[in-house]
């Protein structure tokens, strides 16, 4: 059996305000899911819960590899998220960020492989620049390179094309196509073009 992500009766409240209530769904690899909804409907919160960055108020999220449920402490080995809210180190260069996160992910990448990654996101030739000198679109591209270092089985994209120009959006579409055929992809967005790329869509409306 393939890798699967199951959400069971998930709810999340901030004080008295219930953002997510009794949400259940399952995604299996290879496969893709889109999450949409108006601003403040809980898309980013749901993505953060799936990544275990935020605990749910009720319910649970389980990742299973075949019949084996992955311990929550090991889930980070299976999934990576790209979000405009997740920052890289501004005082390190692009190469230094790639080297640092590849060491943490336990997947050493040599300079040639790092160059290939940077080329795939359109940043070749800028790897020696400090990230502080990057534009917001270049930072978003580098986030993709960092997340793809570990070739995650589950890729979560929060507002995947934000800050990107047309060339950047084309790169993201390539990444989306590859990920949904080789692994699992979950996108949180309101962009119609992005939602066309996924097989199923959930609309959050509280």
């Amino acid at each position: 059996m393939a890798l699967s992500l199951t959400v069971e009766k998930l709810s999340k409240s901030f004080g008295a305000r219930k953002v997510i209530r009794d949400l259940s769904f399952m995604v299996s690899a290879p496969g893709s899911l889109g999450i949409t909804g108006r601003n403040g409907s809980g898309k980013t919160t749901l993505m953060r819960i799936l990544c275990q960055l935020v605990p749910p108020t009720g319910g649970r999220v389980a990742i299973r590899d075949g019949d084996v449920e992955i311990a929550s402490a090991d889930c980070f080995n299976y999934l990576k998220m790209i979000s405009p809210e997740m920052a890289l180190y501004e005082m390190l260069t692009g190469y230094e960020n790639l080297r640092f996160f590849s060491t943490l992910a336990g997947v050493r990448r040599n300079r040639t492989e790092q160059d290939e990654l940077l080329e795939s996101v359109g940043l070749i030739g800028r790897g020696d620049d400090l990230v502080a000198a990057y534009s917001s679109g270049m930072k978003q591209r580098l986030r993709y390179a960092v997340a793809l270092l570990a070739k995650p089985a589950i890729l979560l994209l929060d507002e995947p094309t934000s800050n990107l120009d047309d060339a950047g959006k084309a790169i993201v579409l390539e990444i989306i196509a590859r990920q949904k055929s080789e692994g699992m992809l979950i996108i949180a967005t309101n962009e119609v073009e992005d939602l066309k790329q996924v097989e199923h869509v959930i609309r959050l409306d509280n």
């Binding site: 990544c51 275990q52 960055l53 402490a73 980070f76 999934l79 990576k80 998220m81 809210e85 997740m86 920052a87 890289l88 180190y89 501004e90 996160f101 943490l104 992910a105 960092v146 570990a150």
Partner: peptide, 16 residues
């Protein structure tokens, strides 16, 4: 402050 803590959480065990 730099929001790099979230990125770190997705890449490494807390003990590291």
């Amino acid at each position: 402050d730099a929001k790099t803590a979230q990125t770190l959480r997705l890449f490494a065990r807390p003990s590291v």
